[in-house]
Design a protein around this nucleic acid. Structure first.
Length: 507
RNA sequence: GCCGCGUUCGUCUAAGGGCUAGGACACCACCCUUUCACGGUGGUGAUACGGGUUCGAAUCCCGUACGCGGUACCA
């Protein structure tokens, strides 16, 4: 029997969604689609103190923008819900209690202060961070050290307590990671992790195991930062008697910033976006720019993200999402972390802008102009304009800088580019040219060009010396597509108007 | 400190015992272009270090160094 592949992405609504998280979703998604399986979105909202209102909806928006919508989630439905941990609260206690009964876990009544004292007391030169482990638990207040009667009393009195896993002594926990191969940990160096918190909420360790079992998850992809707690999860699968159903593990390498792991907190400090979309933390009002708003196409963002830790072994770098689904393979995911390079990210976007046709770019470009206060939706020239400038745009926002002169007569001219070589003869040329163009019914790029060159010849001036001034007149600066194409798109009246204005400026 | 995972040009990476270690980004030069780009050609630039195994090591093994992660009633 070949079980259906079921993968899940489980963000915590504690803030934005950064590159590492987005890549985890992507790989989950690619694998699920490739295998014809299910992609599930579960929300880890059991840390009440850090829950951010609106973050869950924001996560959905990000996935939607990238085209990575889940099959099952709190908002999409599915047969294994609920998909928010907070709504599954009751189930976790039941399993935690079962573990206690079987001796695989125990109640611990220690207060936060007592834990601090223990850590202080046990701290030595060779042990900077003492753990609540098989040795320490013997000195603490828990159901392993307290007499039966006292445990009963504490429980009956409703004394706050947690349930901790009882890590075995002198055992080796081994498991296979699809990316890294066999990995092993000594149980002696793993602490007795809290499974159920005093508020009745599960920790990630319990929740991830219970949910993955109940939701029939077959493959678990997560960041490398989870590797150290993997032995706890492996043991839990075993202790709960579900070893047969344990998913296959894949711990993804981390995505690094300029110094160390990319963090959500520093999202606004890198000088480049680390979130898929704009995010303002409602608690701090801290704003973090997103790739979307910075001018990235979702196609480029997804492509770039996929290549940050995976490649297909060929020299191909540009992939559509369908190609990624087809070619993705867990075996080819890298082991080492990758430092994020914004320059390369921009290159991907530039390639995608060049690659996509006008129809596909149009609505995004319209949006850029709209944000600048310019409505272009009904402008019949828009297609032509996009075609003319798209190769020069790295980010979608560049369409404004590269194309606004089509809509606005330049307010300023790059006089430095013209003035040094400006003279009466050139001025005379443009006056004559204006008259000539004004008299003609034709208005195609090729026609304007030949009229321009004939006029230059008859005035005995090299056409090349006149093209730059002409460009400055129409554009305002030294950039843009071929100048005669610009004149064509601008139309006769606007072109003549700009020549006239510029002649006054140049004197 | 302890535990774990890593380490090929500045960055992302290819090469799974066998040619001068290949490609991409960035950078530089030239060509194209009488603007800015696109495009084209070429260039600078890497197997962390030390031992093994082998006819032969970036590749396998051991050690060291360095980096990252974890070491919470956060995920």
């Amino acid at each position: 029997m070949n079980p259906t592949v079921r993968v899940r992405f489980a963000p915590s609504p504690t803030g934005g969604l950064h590159l590492g998280g987005m890549r985890t979703v992507l790989y989950n998604y690619l694998f699920a689609r490739q295998q014809g399986g299910h992609f599930i979105l579960r929300i880890e909202d059991t840390d009440q103190s850090r829950y951010v209102t609106g973050a869950e909806e924001y996560i959905f928006e990000c996935l939607k923008w990238c085209g990575l919508e889940p099959d099952e989630s709190a908002l999409h439905g599915g047969n294994y819900g609920p998909y928010r941990q907070s709504e599954r609260k009751e189930q976790y206690r039941q399993y935690a209690e079962k573990l206690v009964e079987q001796g695989f876990a125990y109640y611990a009544f220690d207060t936060p202060e007592e834990l601090d004292q223990m850590r202080e007391r046990l701290k030595t030169e060779s042990n900077h961070a003492p753990q609540y482990d098989h040795a320490a638990r013997k000195q603490m207040r828990n159901s392993l050290t307290l007499p039966e009667s006292e445990i009963k009393k504490l429980l009956n009195d409703g004394t706050p307590h947690v349930i901790r896993i009882r890590m075995p002594e002198n055992e080796t926990v081994k498991f296979m990671d699809m990316i890294r191969g066999e990995i092993q940990f000594e149980t002696n160096v793993v602490d007795d992790k809290v499974l159920l918190k005093a508020d009745g909420m599960p920790t990630y360790h319990l929740a991830v195991v219970v949910d993955d079992y109940l939701m029939k998850i077959t493959h678990a992809f997560r960041g490398e930062e989870w590797l150290p707690s993997a032995p706890v999860h492996i043991l839990l699968w075993k202790y709960l008697g579900w070893e047969e159903s344990m998913p296959q593990w894949a711990h993804l390498p981390l995505i690094m910033g300029p110094n160390g792991k990319l963090s959500k907190r520093d999202g606004s400090k890198y000088g480049f976006p680390v979130f898929a979309m704009n995010w303002t933390d409602p608690r701090t009002n801290e704003f973090t720019e997103g790739f979307r708003e910075r001018g990235f196409l979702p196609e480029a963002f997804v492509n770039m993200l996929a290549m940050l830790g995976w490649n297909d072994g060929t020299e191909q770098e540009l992939f559509t999402i369908d190609e990624l689904i087809q070619k993705f393979s867990i075996e080819r995911i890298h082991k080492g972390g990758a430092k994020f390079d914004f320059e390369k990210a921009k290159w991907f976007n530039h390639e995608w802008i060049k690659k996509l046709d006008v129809a596909h770019l149009k609505s995004a470009v319209e949006k850029v102009y709209r944000e600048q206060g310019l409505e272009v939706e009904n402008d019949p020239r828009l297609d032509r304009i996009i075609e003319l400038i798209k190769d020069r745009c790295t980010l979608l926002t560049d369409f404004w800088q590269q194309g606004s002169f089509f809509f606005y007569t330049p307010a300023e001219h790059d006089a430095d580019a013209v003035k040094p070589k400006w003279n009466e003869a050139k001025k005379d040329f443009f006056i004559s040219l204006s008259e000539e163009l004004n008299a003609t019914p034709d208005w195609q790029s090729a026609f304007i060009e030949s009229a321009f060159k004939q006029m230059a010849t008859s005035k005995n001036i090299k056409p090349g010396e006149l093209q730059l001034p002409f460009r400055i007149m129409l554009v305002g600066g030294k950039f843009g597509p071929p100048v005669f194409d610009i004149a064509e798109v601008l139309g006769k009246a606007e072109t003549l108007k700009r020549i006239k204005i510029a002649l006054e400026v140049f004197g």
